[in-house]
Design a protein around this nucleic acid. Structure first.
Lengths: 250, 250
DNA sequence: CGATGGATTGAACACTCTCAATACTGGTGG
DNA sequence: CCACCAGTATTGAGAGTGTTCAATCCATCG
């Protein structure tokens, strides 16, 4: 189960579903069951808080919960015995993680910044899903999205230069946070995290940032905030394969 | 005759199908419906053949079919306008492709070797799945597996040296073809394909192969077949993160 | 039996990584 | 309030590795 479905821009689905605001279902006995499960879900869910760099769960831990990140940023990483680390993805506020079915966590999760999340026992979720065709039809939409996302990142790691990787990363982050042109982009993660996410050395990340700054595509008021002044240029760099360069200048 | 013909055939198939020739679904008589769907599926499926390098479908084509590869090997690739190409994965005989729900193909597919496959209209599959809980329970298992696989490859591309990437690739190929120790591994794809899959230059692939040969881990009777003489060493190289080095010497 | 395209190897180069040094920053304690 | 400290950010220089360019070999095919 695990891995992160961080691509979950499907907020509407998850929100409604976790908060029990679903419209009543018309099939014979479904409503009762559904409400029962929702109650159970609510009863067993718990809100938790983590400090920066605190571990939420480790690689290989039993994957018995689904999490919804309320605030803060989480990183999902895999590491090899010799210390190399790869950050599969960052999970932002509003995203779900742990949706992927799998007996134990395929990646570790730890807090990048202060994190608040709600954990739901997987069994409850499963029952809820089973008992309700509507939910069933919606939840699995996350997977295809994550898979597409992963494939795109494979493309990036396989073919792109540091500058392009960074642009890719920034563009996606901006899109995920509904950033409007010129607004400040919050970068909760450190440079090392970015490096491990993009398959680069930290210094290379700094240099890529410097290059983008010099070219005028971005500016950096602080280490943890950027202004993407030229989204158009960034999108061109972050070659989005066939939907390439669909550039909408401000 | 190649592409246009096949595309045309595709079209007509799906057209006919989507024009509502299907029996309506009634929950009551599921068995009947199921059989009906199976019949429909059979009627609209078609067996097709492709020569090496022939295109099966292109990136962005409407994704209206699910394919089962009967024989041969297919490569799924994404490419950027400037010619860089990444091979997401190879599809081997017996594998399914096109299961991912998505309006249009996120990657192009073309034949590596001579390929025979059967295509099923997606809509048929969807109805079949909907109408049968057993099938429904099975089909979606593919996705989590693919996602895990993709995440593992991200790790490989992000953190591993050419030698390690090659080892990873070979080990997986061996595992997928149920290769027993010492047996010949068939490598249907060319060196360039391997390079594009591993995010390396062709020459680097040659050199990685040379290194593995010199270390005695593999030997190469021909360009398209290898003998993995030391699977153990290969698995150690192909650091499989937490299940690392689960080495079972012959 | 040339020819074309893939496989293979060599050498030079470019780029990223590594190592190392310096500058910030927030937090702590005097 | 300021000095200090630890961790992170940033920049520089050199080394190593993968890429690029170029040449050769080999096999399949007309």
């Amino acid at each position: 189960m695990p891995i992160s479905l961080s691509a979950a821009r499907n907020e509407s689905t998850s929100d409604r579903f976790t908060r029990g605001r679903l419209a009543p279902i018309r099939t014979a006995d479904a409503p009762v069951t559904l409400n029962g499960h929702l109650r159970t879900l609510h009863r067993f869910s718990s809100r938790r808080h983590f400090r920066p760099n605190e571990t939420i769960f480790g690689e290989g831990d039993p994957a018995d919960c689904v999490y919804k990140v309320i605030s803060g940023t989480v990183r999902l990483c895999r590491s090899s015995p010799d210390g190399r680390r790869h950050i599969i993805d960052f999970v932002l506020a509003g995203d779900l993680m742990g949706l992927l079915e799998c007996p134990d966590q395929p990646a570790a999760a730890d807090a990048v910044s202060d994190v608040t999340l709600i954990s739901y026992p997987r069994a409850c979720i499963d029952r809820l899903v089973e008992s309700n065709p509507e939910i069933r039809a919606r939840v699995p939409r996350h997977l295809p999205a994550s898979l597409l996302q992963a494939q795109h990142r494979l493309f990036v790691l396989g073919c792109h230069s540091p500058k392009e990787r960074l642009a890719s990363f920034l563009v996606r982050l901006a899109d995920r946070t509904d950033l409007t042109q010129g607004e400040r982009l919050d970068l909760p993660m450190g440079r090392q995290d970015i490096a491990d996410h993009l398959g680069l050395a930290v210094e290379t990340v700094y240099r890529a940032i410097a290059v983008l700054k010099n070219s005028g595509a971005i500016s950096a008021p602080g280490a943890h905030e950027l202004i993407l002044s030229d989204m158009c240029a960034l999108r061109v760099l972050a070659i989005e394969s066939r939907e390439a360069a669909r550039c909408i200048p401000s």
